[in-house]
Amino acid sequence: MTALEIAVQDVAGAVASATLGADRLELCAALAVTGGITPSIGLLDATLAAVPSSVGVHVLVRPRAGSFVYSPEELAVQVGDVRAAVRAGAGGVVVGALRPDGSVDRDAIARLLEAADGREVTFHRAFDTLHELAPAVDELVSLGVVRVLTSGGAVRSIDGLARLAETVRHAAGRLQVMAGGGVRPDDIPALLGTGIDAVHLSASRHVAESGGPGGGSAGYTTTDAAVVAAAAAALDPVDRLQPS
Rank of each mutant, 00 (worst) to 15 (best):
D187V: 00
T122W: 11
G214T: 11
S53W: 02
E74M: 10
D107H: 12
D186V: 13
P39Q: 10
F127G: 14
G102C: 07
D105S: 12
S17N: 08
G195N: 01
A230G: 02
L112F: 03
A229F: 04
A50C: 06
T150E: 04
D117C: 14
D186Q: 13
A226H: 10
H58N: 13
V69D: 09
L113T: 10
G144F: 04
A97L: 05
F68Y: 08
V141W: 13
V15K: 14
A18Y: 05
P63T: 02
I41D: 12
T167S: 13
L25S: 12
A3M: 08
P52I: 09
S210C: 14
D105P: 10
A126F: 11
D128T: 15
T150G: 06
L130N: 09
V55D: 01
M1C: 07
E139V: 12
P72C: 01
V8F: 12
A30S: 15
R106N: 00
P63D: 02
G80E: 15
G118S: 13
R169A: 15
A226F: 08
L25I: 14
P100T: 12
Q78R: 12
G193Q: 01
V69E: 13
G35N: 09
R156L: 04
T194M: 10
A85K: 12
T19M: 11
E166M: 09
D107I: 00
E132Q: 15
A225K: 03
D224P: 04
T2V: 15
T223I: 06
E139K: 00
L4N: 05
T221L: 03
T129C: 03
A16Y: 04
G212W: 13
R174S: 11
A203W: 04
D81G: 06
S204P: 00
A49D: 15
E132L: 15
A115H: 06
